[in-house]
Design a binder for these strands. Structure first.
Length: 361
DNA sequence: AATACGGGGTT
DNA sequence: AACCCAGTATT
């Protein structure tokens, strides 16, 4: 049977030409240092370009080389990463840097199988670093490329790991012999700027004529999306002060927001009044009793799966909780030295603001 | 194969 | 309020 819609694979030349004329100027595109490219790739995981840029500059200023990073401590590293999310990434970068420094003469290994074994190097990041920094001819699949190829081939269904084989085969077919770094970046850039999830700019697309989805007019239906509802949660937060110091505690080393510092408190469960939650959590966490609590502020913070409203109270407790490795009394000014979840950081920021107002008055 | 893991920007 | 993002590790 004759394939009327036989696919006409895109020419890498069209793509590279477009990239040359339309690529954004991004900090990690001005370097060929594999370390810097690695850092950018990890920061960009599930994170938008805009959110990354400042973190990228701050990070390289503090840790300009793999050696400096290998010698860094996790507290400083998390502090630099604060607000970027997915904190395991920072821990893995640190671990991998130590391995690279110790076992690979401080150079990122060029063997994909070796690199893939290091913490934080998954299928995407391994091939991204090797292709972009070392020009190795390796295909890669990120959200942009997955969407773009699904449209090129008119693959229906949700964006999913199940299409990886098809996508990889296609990429290997269209990949040029040279310019792999530009080619891979060009695919991602085209996905980000033209082949967008919503309202793709097909009329400006350099590979429009190769796109099966465009031919069928179904580009906006690919990939299929699923809805998710955001749960609402209330939490009680205790500001416990002794003289000018606040009491903070460290979260467990595993799980959500691992190893970050926060004010004591927790989720509202069966309690009707949030003050009851406050008392229960403080008793459970610190083994002390709340004798007085005054509502201070409400802070709303959105996670991917839920939205939490933090009900913040200033509290008196008996007895005062004690310090140890995971519990500290800290003055307002020094709280910035402790990596905190963004919700807690918002509270600190308001406290500072109020403090400044009072000083002026 | 499904789920945990953040947060900020955009729609 | 929902959607989106240069994914990885664990279960």
């Amino acid at each position: 049977m004759k394939k009327i819609l036989a696919h006409n694979p895109l020419k890498s030349r069209d793509l590279l030409l477009w990239y040359q004329n339309n690529a954004r100027e991004l900090p990690w595109r001005k370097t060929s240092d594999p370390y810097k490219i690695w850092i950018s790739e990890v920061m960009l995981q599930q994170t938008t370009v805009n959110a990354v840029i400042n973190y990228y500059h701050r990070w390289l200023k503090r840790f300009p080389t793999i050696q400096s990073l290998a010698r860094g401590n996790i507290h400083d590293i998390l502090n630099l990463w604060q607000g970027l999310g997915y904190y395991q990434r920072a821990r893995n970068i640190h671990k991998a840097a130590q391995i690279i420094y110790k076992d690979h003469h401080g150079e990122i290994p060029k063997n994909p199988k070796v690199l893939r074994k290091l913490p934080g190097f998954g299928p995407y990041t391994t091939n991204a670093v090797l292709s972009i920094a070392y020009e190795l001819r390796l295909p890669l699949i990120d959200t942009n490329i997955r969407r773009l190829v699904m449209r090129q081939l008119a693959l229906r269904g949700v964006a999913n790991i199940k299409q990886n084989k098809t996508i990889t085969t296609y990429l290997e077919k269209i990949m040029p012999k040279k310019n792999i770094s530009f080619f891979n970046q060009a695919l991602m850039e085209l996905g980000a700027l033209i082949c967008k999830p919503k309202n793709p700019l097909c009329l400006l697309c350099p590979i429009q004529k190769n796109c099966k989805a465009f031919q069928k007019g179904i580009q906006e239906l690919i990939p299929k999306t699923s809805k998710n509802k955001i749960k609402k949660i209330n939490a009680a937060i205790a500001l416990i002060q002794k003289e000018r110091k606040f009491f903070i505690q460290k979260r467990p080393e595993k799980g959500l927001l691992a190893g970050l510092w926060e004010f004591p408190g927790g989720k509202q469960e069966k309690e009707k009044k949030i003050e009851e939650t406050l008392k229960r959590e403080i008793k459970e966490e610190l083994k002390v009793s709340v004798t007085k609590s005054d509502f201070l502020m409400k802070v709303k913070h959105y996670y991917t799966q839920f939205a939490v409203t933090l009900h913040v109270f200033t509290c008196d407790v008996v007895p005062f909780p004690l310090e140890d490795d995971t519990h500290k009394w800290v003055i307002l000014k020094n709280l910035k030295n402790f990596p905190m979840p963004s919700g807690s950081a918002k509270i600190v920021s308001k406290l500072k603001h109020d403090d400044n107002q009072q000083r002026r008055a």
